[in-house]
Nucleic acid binder design. Structure first.
Lengths: 255, 255
DNA sequence: GTTCAATGGACTATAATTTGATCCATTGGA
DNA sequence: TCCAATGGATCAAATTATAGTCCATTGAAC
């Protein structure tokens, strides 16, 4: 018998501590815009219940995120766990983005094209009235925010939250658990490297949202996919321009 | 101030025990064909080292998988942890597939189209000679196996292993970690519901593999994507026919 | 046949993590 | 002034994971 095979080892497993899972979960809901800067998370005792862990564990996670300057904690009756904005972090990010970061963002956007284009095709076929309503609400909200404040300061987080809701609802409408899962996942991953970068975006993408929505309403998968691809690629183009410095744009708030 | 918002709770975290992670990891390498029926896994002590956990934990996982009839354990110098084939399980699966299973497979194949079509496009642009060599080897091996044994009995596992290698190498060549990760993930997921179903497949897909390979060699993303889509859809079509009973095919071994 | 090395089986003490429960400290509004 | 809400702190118990030791079985080499 020929022996001496199966050389490559089986990969190590990662033992994830409970508090790490909680950290990830909290980071996620913040990145996904379910809690905006200034919002209070549920009280520790309630969080523990919702997350299914002990309060001690929640507190460990909170300490870590506090150190990360993603949240801050205040005592007292009106205190709580408060979400910080990008500006509150100060040294949290360097505002500059490395080549590695850019490559990572490129991978993320490549992946988004794959997953979200497929999702929007299926959504165009399977969407219900309820999905349409949610999508319209999100699209309108983004337009309203963009029109009202010209994408300055605080409303950026709200804009991103609506944007996230738009994209996740499409994945929901596609009725495929793997697509749904990945769209949420990749969306959180997108803001992880340097979230504040997105504040500099000035591309007008509201028109894309309405085009995508219209295609979904008309049950036109081809148009939906085309607009989605355009949408994602323009988004990445904007980021790239922003990072490489070409194209001279206002430095995220005209002082 | 308007209070009473943020009603929906943050999802529970899943505390995964070490032995569960080990179970998943071992299942995965078996589903991915890195260990075929009859193969021996590394000895417990070595597994523990490779997985980065204690031997006790490995043994817990082994017990579970033994109960699942995925592996069997033999003592003594020439004993060890041996991978079982679908036939050894007997009652492991019901050979019949429910409507829920079929829908799950449909979701999996929808997802494969999204991810693998994108991966193969990128692979056509970024592949190196090394990737080509690996792909050719896998494609030839599948052809050889199919020609030699007509897809009966034991060689099915080998065929699937080569097939998996083919698809994962493409994802590797795409140079995108998210795509790479998902292709592997979805591949393992595919065999999870009722792996034995795949033994009944008789569609000739070797021609697809060579078409895909040729397109990658020629750096032709459009052709590569088209052939990959065809490949995956035909694969699912075969499964569907098999399950719904239409099309009368040999019952996985003409007795 | 005896020996021996390889392998799984079993047990135990220790360490680390997680829980749960209790009580304290701070805060701002009633 | 009081009090309800909230974070801060501590501790004993339970659970989980580890590391080490020794036993039992097996088959092959001698």
């Amino acid at each position: 018998m020929s022996e001496k095979q199966k050389a490559d080892p089986i990969g190590k497993v990662h033992l994830t501590a409970a508090y790490e899972l909680v950290v990830d979960q909290i980071r996620r809901v913040i990145y996904l815009g379910r809690y905006l800067p200034g919002d209070r998370l549920p009280p520790e005792r309630e969080l523990a219940q919702q997350l299914g862990v002990s309060r001690t564990t929640v507190r460990e996670a909170v300490r870590l995120l506090e150190g990360e300057k993603l949240i801050t904690v205040k005592r007292g009756a009106t205190g709580g766990i408060i979400v910080l904005g990008a500006d509150d972090g100060a040294d949290k990010e360097l505002r500059s983005i490395s080549a590695a970061h850019l490559r990572e963002l490129e991978e993320i956007f490549e992946f988004r094209v794959a997953v979200e284009c497929c999702a929007v095709r299926l959504a165009a076929e399977r969407r219900t009235k309820k999905h349409i309503a949610t999508l319209r609400r999100a699209a309108d909200q983004m337009e309203r925010i963009a029109a009202a404040s010209g994408r300055d300061g605080g409303s950026i987080a709200e804009y991103n939250a609506a944007d996230t809701q738009f994209h996740i609802t499409i994945a929901e409408a596609a009725g495929n658990r793997y697509l749904r899962q990945d769209v949420e996942e990749i969306r959180a991953a997108m803001f992880r490297p340097v979230g504040s970068i997105f504040e500099g975006l000035t591309e007008r993408v509201d028109v894309h949202h309405h085009q995508i929505l219209a295609a979904i309403v008309n049950r036109d998968p081809d148009a939906a996919e085309a607009h989605m691809r355009e949408h994602i690629q323009v988004g990445f183009g904007g980021l790239k321009t922003l990072v490489t410095g070409r194209g001279k744009r206002k430095p995220r708030r005209s002082t």
